[in-house]
């Protein structure tokens, strides 16, 4: 009989330390305001009270923010997959004048910090009449250099022979990409989808700059202002916070391998 490893004595408290804030988030979201507002506040709720959730979901704006965030993220993910695979495939396989230069320039833009571009991007969106619309959030996130680069790297690593037969049979590039290459590209597709969803869903800075009306807020921006307006109703704020975190948390738990591979790959290739 093997004895349990002594490492549990280190790892279990450590893991608990990382988990505690999120556990407290969940617990406090089902407390009553009375439990939270007395001093010292209760550490264990007397029961599960869904008042906070009812308040948030019955709020005129909160569900709308959720939908706004979903729209922006869904469009961003779809567009990154479409434009990223097209561009990545062309850079990996098609010889055309200027391809090296374009790829090099696109990769170079990855080092430009957002603060440097945010004021002119705001002015560009303003001149297009898009400020205070979801369009202002969607357009800058349609395709990232990282997506194009990750797809290119993946396609380069695929054996050419798979495409050759189809090419000789007279198939066009688009057909080859869609019916031969993409079915093999699931790891790359999930990586780009995960990274794009994470960055658009969690973004706060750009929505803060580009959106004014509360009906066009994303969830992150909405949650932040919601807290400012309801800081005596912590249970409702925490319920809202749970709803904000839930999509990425669920995505992470369901596709943990893809998440971890995606994030580790940005590190190992970087």
């Amino acid at each position: 009989m093997k004895r349990p490893s002594a490492w549990h004595l280190v790892l279990a408290p450590l893991a608990l330390l990382f988990a505690l804030p999120l556990l407290w988030l969940l617990v406090s979201s089902v407390m009553t305001n009375a439990e939270i507002n007395r001093f010292p506040p209760a550490l264990i709720p007397s029961g599960i009270d869904l008042g906070g959730y009812r308040y948030v979901l019955g709020n005129a704006l909160f569900p709308r923010w959720f939908v706004n965030s979903m729209i922006v993220s869904a469009v961003a993910v779809t567009a990154n997959l479409a434009f990223g695979t097209l561009g990545g495939y062309a850079f990996a396989r098609i010889r055309f004048a200027g391809s090296k230069l374009m790829l090099g320039m696109m990769l170079a833009t990855m080092v430009i910090p957002f603060q440097l571009t945010m004021i002119p991007t705001f002015l560009v969106m303003k001149s297009l009449g898009l400020i205070d619309t979801l369009g202002a959030l969607i357009i800058p996130s349609l395709v990232t250099p990282l997506a194009v680069f990750l797809f290119r790297q993946f396609f380069v690593s695929l054996p050419r022979e798979l495409e050759e037969a189809a090419w000789i049979d007279g198939c066009g590039r688009l057909r080859i990409l869609v019916s031969i290459v993409l079915p093999l590209a699931r790891p790359a597709l999930s990586t780009v989808a995960v990274l794009t969803f994470l960055s658009t869903w969690n973004d706060l800075t750009w929505p803060l700059i580009a959106i004014n009306s509360d009906s066009n807020y994303t969830l992150q921006l909405g949650l932040t202002t919601f807290q400012g307006q309801h800081h005596t109703q912590w249970a409702a704020v925490m319920a809202g916070n749970v709803i904000t975190v839930l999509p990425v948390l669920l995505g992470f738990l369901l596709a943990q391998k893809a998440f971890i591979r995606s994030l580790a790959s940005t590190g190992l290739k970087g």
Binding site: F18, A19, P21, L22, W24, L25, L198, W201, N202, D203, L204, Q220, L221, L223, T224, Q227, V237, M238, N241, T244, V245, V248, L249, G251, F252, F259, L263
Partner: peptide, 13 residues
């Protein structure tokens, strides 16, 4: 898991 939690959510929490 805390890594996937947005800065806004962390801040509010």
């Amino acid at each position: 898991v805390p890594f996937v939690v947005s800065a806004a959510a962390q801040g509010v929490l």
